[in-house]
Design a protein around this nucleic acid. Structure first.
Lengths: 141, 141
DNA sequence: TTTCGTTGTAACTTTTTTAGTTACAATGAG
DNA sequence: CTCATTGTAACTAAAAAAGTTACAACGAAA
């Protein structure tokens, strides 16, 4: 299992905006330079963050800013925006044998446990917000 | 993010062995029929489970059995065996800009938080063992 | 109202990962 | 010795992620 780099790029993007947008115009080009990712990839991620209500973007003139207080943006908000739009986290293999008592009930039996695992991850993601990460970034300067 | 179907197939495999191996010879072919996956795919997963010390397999004559008590095999054991052999769970994009205060410190700042998220998931996975899943399977018959 | 930097998005390629498949030597009980 | 099975290599296919090129649309400023 690998969480896509969209997650860390998404976090990086939000941090850049939080860190610089009061002083500079933070464009996709700017973020691409900081992350070392392609500007179009950044624009796609910015689009997802915008759709999730986390950032707003000035069309035409360009530049992104945060739409919410840095206290109110958690890692889960970013994760949900860029990495979990509609897919389930766990994938079942298709058509297990319904004549087998194990195969027949696997999905039902497993589902609640898998949801608990996902919930545990989500709870932990919600504990970290952008304010914390910006403070930690400043502490390393 | 998607956890590969190896995880649910691995669980399915262990459950099949736990459920049937006292009565039947549980071969890769048998498990393939129950899971609706390819026998070679099952053998690969069985190999990983074996390497992790969860199952033992009779070469030549064939058939798998559990090497540990069903109480002592958790979802995490299976996850670790089939899906997390050496990779990190979260992927950082490479070469963030070291001249940018955000890019320079991202990895350091983020790492502990990502580890906490992973740990939360692992703890939850450890809460479910094979005994529980077999009991739940039986309760649906 | 023209210019210019930027966004948003389509379309495509490349890369990586996962799963499926074929094939076959090695195993070991009967 | 036979035979079902394992273990594994080598390949293909499919899916997902990331990178890239291209360009219309936007809107502030000259």
């Amino acid at each position: 299992m690998q969480v896509t780099s969209r997650f860390t790029i998404g976090i990086h993007t939000v941090l850049c905006i939080g860190y610089f947008s009061d002083r500079l115009k933070v464009t996709s080009e700017f973020i691409a330079k900081s992350t070392n990712a392609n500007p179009v990839v950044i624009r796609r991620i910015l689009g997802q963050l915008k759709k999730a209500g986390l950032v707003s973007i000035k069309a035409g003139v360009g530049g992104a800013s945060l739409s919410k207080n840095t206290d109110d943006i958690t890692l889960y908000d970013i994760f949900k925006a860029v990495d979990a739009e509609e897919n389930e986290m766990f994938s079942f293999h298709s058509n297990p044998n319904c004549k087998c008592p194990v195969g027949k009930n696997l999905h039902t039996v497993l589902n609640n446990h898998l949801i608990s695992i996902e919930d545990a991850m989500i709870s932990e993601m919600k504990k970290t917000n952008i304010t914390t990460l910006l403070n930690e970034t400043n502490s390393y300067l």
